[in-house]
Nucleic acid binder design. Structure first.
Ligand code: FES
Ligand code: FES
Lengths: 145, 145
DNA sequence: CTAATTAAAGGTATTTTTGTCCTTAATTAA
DNA sequence: TTAATTAAGGACAAAAATACCTTTAATTAG
């Protein structure tokens, strides 16, 4: 479904939202261990999410690390997909036609359309905060080993 | 969503179902042109679909090519996904956890679950025949240039 | 039988994705 | 100010996906 990069971006952001605050920043090492991802690759993805503080914030030096503001927790998951350039995934034709359109639909188009829209809705309406709260109660990363 | 290999497999099979019969076999060249795919790579995928005649049939030599039997047109799309090893795509956790389970669900699990099941249903219930008929009436491959 | 045609099979090449490593910059504490 | 810590940034490496090419096998027509 998603690329590894996107999966790590989603998992990392949810974890950061769950555990961090301005006075409790999380190190790359902790995050990568928690979400079971390769540290160096994860660093790259966190850099993307940190760019312009668009999703998460970072501070260098001792006691530095990554955190997310309350404001940014209100962002929809879609925002994360945008950052890793996978935002248009659900706009694409499921058979890989160059464009998904009503005027020249592929034979799956009209059956896929409502599903596609549920997926878009899912990522548009769920905020990072909501997901991180669910992660609390449902023990998110336990079964990833 | 799907890999290129899977997209080509789906498009090729639908095209073959639409245009071929035992006495009208289609050459690799024609198929690749029709579905706008790289010929050599498409050849590999057609080989997979031909293995054990599981989806399509092939004949070598002059007037040879690919075709599909009426019987195999009754196969669900899921069969094509199996052949290209993408059948488990919809079983996977959307956040990339090693297993998608009810007992240790990720925070998107319960919202994703119904969508996942619609996707599974889509590929289980639609047959190759049904799709190829839709492709007729809806001009499948016109907009792929 | 021979030549032509077409898919099968295997190896190779390119591109993209994923992952690592090393140096630099920022920050902090001593 | 110096040393330690942590992320940023860039170059590099490995793996996987995508794409190509050449040879072989099967089939057919002449
Ligand atoms: S054209 Fe294929 S999904 Fe819309
Ligand atoms: S556990 Fe993530 S979708 Fe089921």
């Amino acid at each position: 479904m998603f690329s590894k990069a996107t999966e790590y971006a989603l998992r990392a952001t949810i974890y950061i939202a769950q555990k961090s605050s301005v006075d409790k920043k999380l190190s790359l090492t902790e995050i990568a261990q928690a979400i079971d991802s390769p540290p160096s690759f994860t660093a790259k993805i966190l850099q993307l999410l940190t760019k312009d503080n668009s999703v998460i914030h970072s501070v260098r030096g001792p006691n530095g690390g990554f955190y997310i503001t309350e404001k940014n927790k209100q962002l929809p998951l879609k925002k994360i997909l945008e950052v890793v350039n996978e935002n248009d995934l659900f706009e694409k034709c499921i058979l890989g036609l160059k464009k998904c359109s009503e005027t020249n639909p592929c034979p799956l188009h009209f059956q896929y359309k409502p599903i596609k829209q549920e997926l878009i809705y899912l990522f548009q309406t769920n905020t990072i905060l909501e997901l991180s709260e669910k992660a609390d109660s449902e023990s998110l990363f336990i079964n990833n080993k």
